[in-house]
Structure formats: C-alpha cells, structure tokens
Write a protein that binds this DNA or RNA. Structure first.
Lengths: 191, 191
DNA sequence: TACCCCATGTAATCAGTTACATGATTAT
DNA sequence: ATAATCATGTAACTGATTACATGGGGTA
C-alpha cells in the first residue's frame, strides 16, 4: 500500500514526529514555531489528522499521561508514507493577503478608508520582522543549527523585510500622511 | 439587509464588476491578472459565487451573448455590499508554500533529494520576477495608472525579488553545486 | 468536416475555520 | 477554594480543489 493518502499538513506532523513522540498540543506549538510563517494549521486539523493517521497505521497513540496527554509515535509505515510524500513534486505557493486585495480594489472605495488598516498591518509586520531578526541572531550564534531550519527562517526574514519596505514606500494616498505608529518593543528570542 | 454575507472572493468579483459587465470567464482572467499573486481563485468558485450573488441581488445576469456568454452586471445592492465588505477589518495573510515545508523537514529526507525541486521553483520565481519587472516598467511609463493597482504590483515585485534572492543564498546542501538553470526568455508586457 | 479553444456549469470531495463542550492540573 | 491554563476533542460550516460533462464557434 504505497501511501498516496497524505496531505501536506499531515505529512508535516509525521515530520515532527521523527524527533520522538508528541501530543497534538505539542505538535501545534512545534508547527507554529517551525513552519508557522509559511504553513498554518489549526488544532482541529491536528487532532483530526492524528486520528486519521492512527487508523492508517502511520502513528500509534501511547498511554495517556497526566491530563489526558496522548502522545503519538510514528511507525515504520508512517516513516515510509512521509518519504513517499516528500518525493512528490511540491506545488506552487498560495498567498492569501486580504489587505492587498483591499488595496487592489481601493479605487472603488471612499478615499482614505484603508489608511488605518494599512497602518495596523505595517505594525504587525514590523513586529514579526523584529522577532525574526532576534531569532536569527540567536540561531547563527549557536553552533550546529539545522541548515534546513535556518534556510526556511531566512525566507521568513526576507519576506518580512520586503513587506516592511513595501509599506514604507507606499504613496500618501494609501499610507496616510502621519508617520508610522511606533512599534512596541518585543522580547528577544523565541524558541 | 445589511449584507453580512460576502466572502473576500465574492467581494473581489464585485470589485471588478464596477468597471462594467463581465462574464465568469472574463472575471477569472481579470482576477488572475490583477490579484493573482496574492489572491487565487478557481473557475468553479467564480461561477458559484456569481450564482449566489445573483440570488442575493448583488448582480444581475444579462442576455446571453454568443457561446452562452452570460455577462453579469453589478446592482446598487451589490455596490452597497461591496462597500460593507470593504469596511471590515482585513484578516492577516496566509501563506502556503509547499517547497518551504519540504525544506523545513529536509533533515529527515535522503540528502540531495530536494535539489531538483529547489532548482525548478527558483526558475518559476525568476520568470515571474522578469515578467513583473516588464509590467512595472510599462505601467510606470504610462500616465494615469491606478495608484492602488501599482501599489499591489509593487508588492509582488518586492516579494519575487526577495524570493529569488533567497534562492540564490541557499547553501549547496540545499541548492546543489550546479549553477542555476537558465531562465527562459519571457515576452514583454502582459495585461 | 474535424479539431481546438471558448465557455459554462455540476458533483464530489477535501481542507480549513469557528464555536462549543469538557475536564484535569497547577498556581495563588 | 478558585481561577487560570493545559489539553483534548466534536460538530457544523464554509471555502477551495478536482474531475467530469456539455456544447457552441472559429479556424484550418
């Protein structure tokens, strides 16, 4: 049975499970930190995919620990399914950026209406950029970091830099005449 | 009836319909050109949303032209619904980038396995970048371009530049030792 | 006349989101 | 004791994707 039945979200869970048993809760946190910037998933999804994969035999639930913690362990079949998934051609990226959609259609809205939204989102990106820069510094200082993880982190960094630069170049018509709001300070590195 | 029932995809269609009647087919093409880089939609979706919006009275189907072409026209209710949608807080962006997911988990795959995929996607982005640069030049030369459309185009440009730069900085472990494949020439401007 | 492209649509399925329900443990 | 938070899960829904079916029109 050559495992044609994994979606990317499920596959990513199998990926994380290579490092040892994890509960659904753990996996959400791990995914958020490791792939959050370019692959989002929700708790519901994680629990559902874990249940599915348990049926397919790709993972096995261990004994529940305290608090209903139910750690899942990857099986040999799971590892095989993961490799099968990894050997498929990855599809193109999909971006859904509501603010950009709004701006694209801005011509048909009252003038100045989207300035507040633009300012707010600029702040969001500035915060993420700051945080990522902190993490990158920490990672680059440390020896023996996973080059794959570093590479993807670098992508996030480049993306956020481009985003903030783009905001800063917007014409007044769109960004307003006020200076940008201050970016609240962020605590240093995050796991 | 204060129009709480528009999703972003439907709203974008209403946006395009401000410029005059369009068929579903037209709208797909328009959307692809205007918002493709940061908002994808499929034909199925377009026809479905048009049918829905016709029921809600936001659009009206005109007389079918040759070849079953069925142009839709926006109504006053449609314009109102569009403005209502436009006044809502836009959500954060979502990115789904399968290649990055693959790289993030690269540690668990046979060495070198993802080099071909990386090379291929680098080419895709280089092509898009070239094309966008052509379009931008054309747009900037022309007088009276819609500043909103220009702004969103600029975002795409910044994004693609960041993407290509990121590919070019990848370590050999991930990008391979070969030079990048040649980027096929692209025809100048695209509508 | 045959073929390709334009054009519309339906059906089935899958993925993702949101809201809800529940209980156990830790810290105060 | 009580509140906060950890942790799991279900249900309902919405949105997105893929595959399929159909036929007209233009062009070679």
């Amino acid at each position: 049975m050559p495992a044609q039945d994994l979606n990317a979200t499920a596959a990513s869970l199998l990926g994380f499970l290579h490092d040892g048993p994890r509960t659904g809760w753990d996996l959400v946190a791990t995914a958020e930190a490791a792939i959050g910037p370019f692959w989002s998933l929700t708790r519901s999804q994680v629990y559902r995919e874990l249940a599915r994969m348990a049926e397919s035999g790709y993972v096995e639930a261990g004994d529940p620990g305290p608090r209903e913690r139910r750690p899942y362990e990857i099986t040999d079949a799971g590892r095989a399914a993961f490799l099968e998934w990894a050997s498929r051609e990855p599809g193109e990226e999909v971006i859904r950026f509501p603010l950009l959609l709004l701006i694209a259609l801005g011509r048909h809205m009252p003038a100045g209406q989207l300035i507040p939204a633009v300012r707010h989102h600029r702040t969001l990106h500035a915060i993420r950029l700051q945080r990522l820069e902190g993490v990158m510094q920490a990672v680059e200082a440390a020896q023996g970091a996973d080059p794959f993880a570093v590479a993807t982190m670098r992508f996030g960094l480049g993306y956020e830099r481009a985003a903030v630069a783009w905001f800063d170049d917007l014409p007044e018509e769109i960004r307003g005449t006020e200076p940008w709001p201050e970016v609240p300070p962020v605590d240093g590195a995050v796991a």
